[in-house]
Structure formats: C-alpha cells, structure tokens
C-alpha cells in the first residue's frame, strides 16, 4: 500500500503532500522533512529505494523536483517507480512541459490528477487519457 506521496524541491520545500494513511497534522512536517533528508542526501548513482523505519521510500528526481513515495513492505517498488514516472508524464502532458511553477499555481489540478491515479493508497488508473479525461472536462466547463 502507498502511505504518502510528496513533491519536494531541492531546497527541501514541500510543494505537494498527499497522505493515504492518517498522520496527525502536527507530525506531518517532521515526517516530511525526515523523509526528504533521507532522499536528498543520496548521491545520483545510489538506488532509488530506501529502507526507512518500518517501510520503504521510492524516490525519483525530475529537474529540480523530487517525488518521494512511502510504501509498505507488501508493495512492489518497481511498480511504484513506474507510477511516479507515469504521474510526471501525465503532468507533463497536461501542462506541456511541467515546471515547479505549474505545480505551485495549479495545486488543485495536480491533486485531481493524483486522485485519478491513486485511491486509498492503491493504484487505480494508469492510462494517461483516462486519467486526464475528468480534468479536461472540468476545464471545458470552466471555459464556459
């Protein structure tokens, strides 16, 4: 199961966080900075899977952004590794060359995309067109 997904910049600022398991609001900041440190400190040629406490972290770096996913032991790291890439590709497709700025100023849309892909900590959709369909419909509506 997926416990959480974070998007963090190189300075360690959280740009997006989504938890699929209840974590007290007060404890999230500490958890996030801890997790981020565990990943940011690693060298480029090190493995993208990190043992962390009683679970695992899967992370990937895209330009200046890191995506970090916390998963339980029973989850398949490789599938999550691919999920992260798929998520980025969907964002890239929607924003045509996604950047940190796009994520900062369209956080609502990024959440919509993420929620099409992951529900309750499980992957529910991987097809890019189907993931984007509801958001594109909403966009059409907003345009009038």
């Amino acid at each position: 199961m997926i416990k959480f997904l974070l998007m963090v910049n190189k300075q360690g600022q959280t740009r997006l966080s989504r938890h699929y398991e209840q974590v007290d609001i007060g404890k999230r900041a500490a958890l996030e900075s801890d997790v981020v440190k565990a990943c940011l400190f690693r060298m480029k040629d090190e493995c993208s899977f990190v043992e962390y406490k009683d679970y695992k972290l899967v992370y990937r770096q895209y330009a200046a952004l890191f995506i970090v996913v916390g998963i339980t032991d029973s989850e398949n790291e490789l599938s999550i590794y691919e999920l992260v890439h798929n998520f980025i590709e969907v964002l890239d497709k929607y924003f045509s060359r996604v950047s940190e700025l796009d994520i900062m100023f369209n956080l609502d849309k990024v959440h919509i995309i993420l929620d099409e892909m992951i529900q309750n900590g499980h992957i529910v959709e991987t097809n890019k067109n189907r993931i984007l369909a509801p958001l594109l419909a909403l966009d059409k509506m907003a345009e009038g």
Partner: peptide
Amino acid sequence: EHNQGFGLMS
C-alpha cells in the same frame, strides 16, 4: 488567464 480555472489555489 491563470487566475480563473477552478480558482481555489490561486
């Protein structure tokens, strides 16, 4: 142009 959309985050 980017301020509209669903407007919540902006």
